[in-house]
Design a binder for these strands. Structure first.
Lengths: 186, 186
DNA sequence: ACCTGAACACCGTTCAAGT
DNA sequence: ACCTGAACACCGTTCAAGT
């Protein structure tokens, strides 16, 4: 006689995301997730392989959301404006979901996101980089701007800017100079 | 009758660094450190307050080492060459000690490095940034280049560059363009 | 088919007892 | 003064037993 399902993979992942953001990576325990969806911890193993698998599923979910934000942002058709919109959306996402963001760029113990997820998330940035720096330099140009944006935001979130000064001003400075740097040929 | 000391804070921190690099952050357990220095786990609490404190001590040690590397690198007096040397030293450190590097830029649960450590580590980059971008823009310019370098290296170490292409070429591209971008006034 | 309690092998940390 | 075993409150995970 089958026992009725009390939860679902979708609910488990959603609860995981909520707990990740509220309690941090270390607070994301199987027991807490289980309680949140109304079962005991062992039952979670009917939905996910293990904690690493749950984290990977959360990761895919977060990546999809960031990709949607970026795709929505880069629509002006004017490359410099698109780059600014992409950077702003990127930073906004990180500020709104710091723990999810950190997870996205953390070294992945178990495989990380699937290749398709990576490609889809890179698309808008690559298009804008190509428009600014030329098709031949699109990949290194995209890597330069993403490296800058990720480095800036992750240092900001980690509290690494501790010499005073205006952090927003440094962001604007970097964005302005980088935009210019990608445009100019060397 | 005092029991003879079997270890020291210095030895505990050194063992911690070795284990961190070999076993990763999660493998850095009190039990493993204790075994490495020849005592049982409870004895470590005579040397460090708790695991967070041990991590903070390791962090200070790692920061001092990176700072020394950077100070040694930026000595040519020619700003563009110094920037290249700083970037190369920074990336080299991260490649040689990936786990220590990740710790350095991770959000710090317990306080993080002391302010003096931060200031000393920023010095060489700030001087070079001032020489390139002018004293008024030194801080945002330094933040831009460190954000780029950290973002690049951390993505590289996390395996986030998964669209093929030459990663070294992207590093060179970014360094060249950024150097130029910091020099040009806006 | 899914859920559960019990169990196992780990953690970090505390503390009384030894020397 | 430092070291130790025992203990506590947690983890993730497995599994036999329930429905």
């Amino acid at each position: 006689m089958p026992a009725p399902a009390q939860t679902s993979m979708t609910a488990v992942v959603a609860a995981g995301r909520r707990i990740l953001e509220q309690e941090g990576h270390d607070g994301l325990t199987m027991q807490r997730v289980a309680t949140a969806v109304g079962v005991r911890a062992p039952s979670l193993y009917k939905r996910v392989a293990d904690r690493g698998d749950l984290i990977r599923l959360i990761l895919e979910d977060v990546a999809r959301e960031l990709t949607d934000d970026l795709d929505t942002a880069a629509t002006s058709g004017e490359p410099r404006q698109d780059l600014r919109a992409l950077a702003t959306a990127f930073r906004g996402f990180a500020h709104a979901r710091p723990a999810a963001y950190a997870l996205l760029f953390a070294p992945h113990t178990a495989g990380g996101p699937r290749q398709g997820t990576i490609e889809r998330s890179s698309d808008a940035v690559l298009r804008t980089a190509a428009a600014l720096a030329g098709a031949d330099s699109a990949l290194p140009a995209a890597r330069t701007v993403v490296a800058w944006a990720h480095g800036f935001v992750s240092m900001e979130l980690a509290g690494a800017f501790r010499l005073g000064g205006d952090v927003d001003e440094a962001w604007e400075f970097g964005l302005r100079r980088l935009t210019h740097a990608l445009e100019s040929s060397d």
